[in-house]
């Protein structure tokens, strides 16, 4: 067992090293060795930067290499890397929270009421077929360049994903379990709280993981189109200076933010769904 685990780790590290080495020196080496026509453009540091440059940009943007010192550097730039990350993270979080809360609420209500489901069904389908990203300029027009428009964009992308899953999950609740709860004395509300919600939770969580990524995408796109602060804004600025390494820094920061959010959702999921075999705490 430990044998195969170390083998997996070995290959993971090996792939990382190869990618980094090719990224760092691949372009120079191929220029020296290959005829000009065969040099892969994709490795050109002008477009994709290279690890050493990215690391330097990270130190500079992150205020680790500033002669004035960390604090002065942070205060001198109102869209420094840390503040930008914080703003993007915060807007992602609120958009995700509002989007999933309202998606869950709407999914439960329509899932429990055949009448409402039939009334709203066509509207939901119609609204859902609008590509959400197409609405971003409109959202910014309405809510301005500040945080609110980013939260609204994230809300838009999160809501429908969570809504549809909650709706399906609510529909899939075992009718006999509901009858059993009733016969044991549960009121309509108690049935919702103690049977429908726990039972639909697996479906809800299946949508929350993609929803986190969607929220992040929504916020970044919002920041591309119009923002004062945030990682998306940082990327757009770097693009304006054709600075690939700064873009890469922003992309890596987003990657870590995404991983952290996914870990948070996943650990909540494995706690709340610990009664399901795949989330059983391993011995």
């Amino acid at each position: 067992m430990s044998n195969s685990r170390s083998a997996v780790l070995f290959w993971q590290v090996a792939i990382l090293v190869v990618v980094l080495v090719v990224w760092q020196w691949g372009f120079e080496w191929s220029k020296a060795l290959l005829p000009k026509a065969y040099v892969p453009k994709i490795l050109d540091p002008y477009f994709v930067a290279k690890p050493s440059l990215i690391w330097q940009s990270f130190l500079r943007l992150g205020c680790f290499a500033d002669s004035a010192g960390f604090a002065a550097c942070i205060n001198g730039n109102d869209n420094n890397l840390w503040l930008a990350t914080l703003v993007t993270l915060k807007n992602t979080w609120w958009g995700f929270l509002f989007g999933s809360a309202s998606g869950i609420a709407a999914g439960l209500v329509l899932g429990r009421s055949d009448f409402l489901a039939r009334v709203f069904g066509p509207y939901v389908v119609a609204l859902n077929s609008i590509p959400r990203i197409a609405l971003v300029p409109l959202v910014i027009l309405i809510f301005g360049l500040g945080d609110l428009s980013k939260i609204a964009t994230a809300w838009l992308v999160v809501f429908f994903v969570v809504f549809f899953n909650t709706f399906e999950g609510t529909r899939a609740v075992d009718r006999d379990q509901i009858a059993a709860a009733r016969l044991l004395g549960a009121s309509e509300f108690t049935v919702l709280r103690t049977v429908v919600i726990p039972s639909a939770l697996a479906w809800v969580f299946a949508s929350l993981l993609p929803a986190v990524s969607f929220a992040l995408i929504g916020v970044i796109v919002g920041e591309f189109i119009g923002a004062e602060r945030g990682i998306g804004k940082l990327i757009i600025e770097a693009e304006a200076h054709a600075n690939a390494s700064e873009m890469m820094v922003a992309i890596f920061v987003m990657m870590f933010v995404g991983i952290l959010l996914a870990i948070a959702v996943r650990s909540l999921q494995s706690y709340l769904l610990r009664w399901q075999p795949q989330f059983e705490p391993s011995a």
Binding site: D176, Q177, A179, A180, T194, P198, L201, W275
Partner: peptide, 15 residues
């Protein structure tokens, strides 16, 4: 409330 019911199918709450 004076009536109890046991189902043909398994209706325990798995959570």
């Amino acid at each position: 409330p004076r009536v109890g019911y046991v189902f043909q199918r398994d209706t325990l709450f798995p959570w």
